[in-house]
Design a binder for these strands. Structure first.
Length: 609
RNA sequence: GACUUGGUAGCUCAGCUGGUAGAGCACAUCCCUUUUAAGGAUGGGGUCCUGGGUUCGAGCCCCAGCCAAGUCACCA
């Protein structure tokens, strides 16, 4: 007899007799999925059962107080060996080296890992060695969460270690963790597959400590920006995500529906028009860290939902805003890195003020040698051909200039650079330039070849604003899916008068990528959007179909194991063959359930819808 | 949306010209009883992403699909 089968048998009995009903109650449509588990998971469920039999609650309700972290101990113990002589700490069990009556394991808490020393006769001072021999050595696994009490010492090997006097199981883990090992900075069996890392980010966070670091940095970056803005007495606000008219940017929206209002709503693509209403309302400065949603392509720079910080300050202009951006980003860089120079890929980016400034025309002249500032649309079109920039007939003057810039300049701007004075056609919400006709007072900051922010002197002339919206409507009629919609309610607001205002939008995810030296937006989002995993067919429904045909639960599992994973495959099967297969599986797994009768199997198959 | 590459055990990956599915870690049993990715022995574990096709025979070849990564397009 094969040893593995015996364990399977036990596990099945556990599931069928004791835990099975609770598994079903968790998700009855996928009950067989719960049964279709790997051998290692069987062993863990078996260990769970044994723990319960020993009177140990694997999921205790009590709080577990800790008085120290792994990081504290590692940082301070070598300086003063009298410290940490009565510690209590909790975390996840990572590595284990069991040497008989003495064992070493690693405990990982939110701050890092520390080695634990378990000694049999200290854990179990009396005759009963169960808590060591059985519970610790056999029933605990990598991934379980425990709490320990003890004192800190240094082993012969020179490693700071907690000598455990008492431990408590805080949570039994039922699934094996990817085991990543490391020696002298070299990582073995790294958990690197991006799909798994993003879909099961918790695993990524458990086994890849550098990932935790990225999200710490992201949080500190946002904190630093918020502190900066609050120190200027601007008001942090919240505005609607669900908007009846989407606006404030050129993008395609997600559409949804409100039942009670019986109306279409959109997830915001920007919050600009709401923040400006607040400036109309009399605030001098408002900002929001806003999740925006754009129904467009995905790439390593684009996620369907992303975070933008938008700021509007009354009585200011875009020149003023440029200085604010420099000051703010420089401060953030210093807060995070202690220097203005940070590595990004194979480059070093320096955020020290002042940043380079080019007008868009100057940038194009700088990178292509062509002065387009006086060109007509036809001349521009010829220039694009000469430069090898692809265009189409729907593009007007502004779009052509933007194409040249995007194609020839943007990627080459590595150090933070302000690009100013954009064509009016591209910027329906920006104020016309005070001296340069055909342009608007707008700037973007480009860094590492990508836009990180966008700002302008906000258009507050309601007549001009209406005309600009109407031009957008015309673009929309010509088929531009990103053309803005006329927002009558917003126009009404600025007709009441909005002070001259400088507005800014900063892509938080993009900035986080630079600040954490991440190559992909997915690395700075906990849960980047992924296509839903395709489960094999419609499992839940099939199970219901099997149930509806009068097939008892245990046999449904075996039917799946026999390869009948869909109702139709079972429907087409030969009843005698199915009967033989089920009996074979029952015998092989030594299941403690009576064999079916041939006529039962036949009737099940006939009953399948 | 287009192209390229990939999908094999819980994890990381091999797999020859198409010929009985492999390793390391993890797991189990036993021995050992203070270790640093690592004590020893033995053992179990697979829908080779899915569905078709070619073939005596497919993890491998062909077609279609799914998922991911990269590049491009659109976009912040």
């Amino acid at each position: 007899m094969i040893p593995g089968i015996k364990s399977c048998k036990n596990s099945f009995n556990v599931l069928l007799n004791e835990n099975y009903s609770s598994l079903i109650s968790i998700d009855k449509n996928k009950s067989y999925m719960a049964l279709k588990i790997s051998e290692q998971e069987h062993f863990r469920r078996e260990a769970l059962r044994e723990l319960k039999e020993l009177g140990i609650n694997p999921y205790p309700a009590d709080k577990y107080d800790v008085n120290v972290t792994a990081k504290d101990i590692l940082k301070h113990f070598s300086e003063d060996k009298t410290l940490f002589q009565d510690v209590q700490i909790a975390g996840r069990l990572m590595g284990r080296r069991i040497m008989g009556s003495a064992s070493f394991t690693e405990l990982q808490d939110s701050t890092g890992r520390i080695q634990l020393y378990f000694n049999r006769d200290e854990i179990c001072p009396g005759e009963d060695k169960t808590m060591y021999n059985t519970v610790f050595k056999r029933l605990l696994d990598i991934g379980d969460i425990i709490g320990v009490k003890g004192f800190v010492f240094i082993t012969k090997m020179g490693e700071i270690t907690i000598h455990v006097k008492e431990y408590t199981i805080l949570c039994k883990s039922l699934r094996p963790l990817p085991v990543v090992k490391e020696k002298d900075g070299e990582v073995y069996d790294a958990f690197r597959d991006p799909e798994q890392r993003y879909r099961q980010r918790y695993l990524d966070l458990i086994v890849n400590p550098e990932v935790r670091q990225v999200f710490h940095q992201r949080a500190r970056m946002i904190q630093s920006m918020r502190d900066f803005l609050l120190s200027k007495d601007y008001l942090e606000v919240e505005t609607p995500v669900l908007q009846p008219i989407y606006g404030g940017a050129a993008a395609r929206p997600f559409k949804t529906y409100h039942n009670t209002l019986d109306t279409t709503l959109y997830l915001r693509i920007a919050n600009e028009l709401y923040l400006k209403r607040l400036i109309v309302g009399g605030y001098d400065g408002v900002f929001e860290f806003a999740k925006d949603f754009r129904n467009e392509g995905m790439s390593r720079f684009h996620n369907p939902e992303f975070t933008q910080m938008e700021l509007y300050v009354a009585y200011k202009d875009y020149e003023w805003m440029m200085e604010l951006v420099e000051e703010m980003i420089e401060k953030i860089t210093l807060d995070l890195h202690g220097t203005t120079q940070i590595p990004v890929g194979d480059k070093v980016i320096d955020f020290k003020r002042p940043w380079k400034r080019y007008s868009m025309y100057e940038a194009i002249e700088h990178f292509t040698g062509v002065d387009i500032s006086e060109m007509t649309e036809d001349q521009l079109r010829n220039t694009t051909k000469e430069l090898g920039v692809e265009t189409d007939k729907t593009m007007g003057r502004g779009k052509l200039i933007d194409e040249i810039f995007g194609e020839k300049c943007e990627a080459q701007l590595i150090q933070p650079t302000f690009i100013t004075d954009y064509p009016v056609e591209m910027s329906p919400l920006a104020k016309k330039h005070r001296t340069k006709p055909g342009l608007v007072e707008r700037f973007e900051a480009i860094c590492n070849g990508k836009e990180i922010c966008n700002a302008f002197s906000e258009l507050n002339d309601p007549i001009d604003q209406r005309a600009r919206f109407e031009e957008q409507i015309e673009l929309g009629r010509r088929g531009d899916p990103e053309a803005m919609i006329l927002d009558e309610d917003f126009l009404k607001a600025i007709e009441h008068g909005m002070p001259p205002t400088a507005g800014l939008g900063i892509g938080i995810d993009r900035l986080a990528m630079i600040m954490t030296n991440s190559n992909s937006i997915q690395d700075v989002l906990f849960f980047p959007q992924m296509r839903p995993e395709k489960t094999s067919g419609t499992e839940g429904n099939i199970n219901d179909e099997f149930t509806a045909a009068g097939i008892p639960e245990p046999w449904i599992t075996l039917l799946h194991q026999a390869g009948y994973s869909t109702a139709s495959t079972l429907k087409e099967a030969n009843p005698n063959k199915v009967f033989n297969q089920l009996c074979g599986l029952r015998k092989k797994q030594k299941l403690d359930i009576p064999a079916p009768k041939p006529e039962d199997v036949k009737s099940w198959i006939e009953n399948i819808g």
